[in-house]
């Protein structure tokens, strides 16, 4: 299935949870927040929330700003 992650297309072999996606992205242990289809998915649900074909995923972090 195909999802969009931070505006880029990504092909996934199987249905995965957010936690699996995060570990594939090597983001474990970092500070980030995740939105799927413009809705926040809270950290406590990352283990159980499965991604679906066509999902738009945003992963954000804090950077320098004024």
């Amino acid at each position: 299935m195909k999802i969009q992650i931070n505006g880029e297309p990504l092909e996934l072999a199987d249905k995965v949870t957010i936690s699996v996606l995060v570990s594939q992205m090597a983001l474990e242990g970092q500070r980030y927040a995740i939105e799927v289809n413009e809705e926040i998915v809270s950290r406590s649900n990352h283990d159980t929330h499965c991604l679906n074909d066509g999902d738009q995923v945003e992963i954000v972090q804090a950077i320098g700003g004024g």
Partner: peptide, 20 residues
């Protein structure tokens, strides 16, 4: 201290230090 919220760089330098 103010910070901005932006897309994480996917697949780039995982060891890059984070502002926080």
């Amino acid at each position: 201290v103010t910070v901005a919220v932006r897309r994480t760089n996917i697949g780039q330098n995982a060891d890059e230090p984070n502002l926080l």
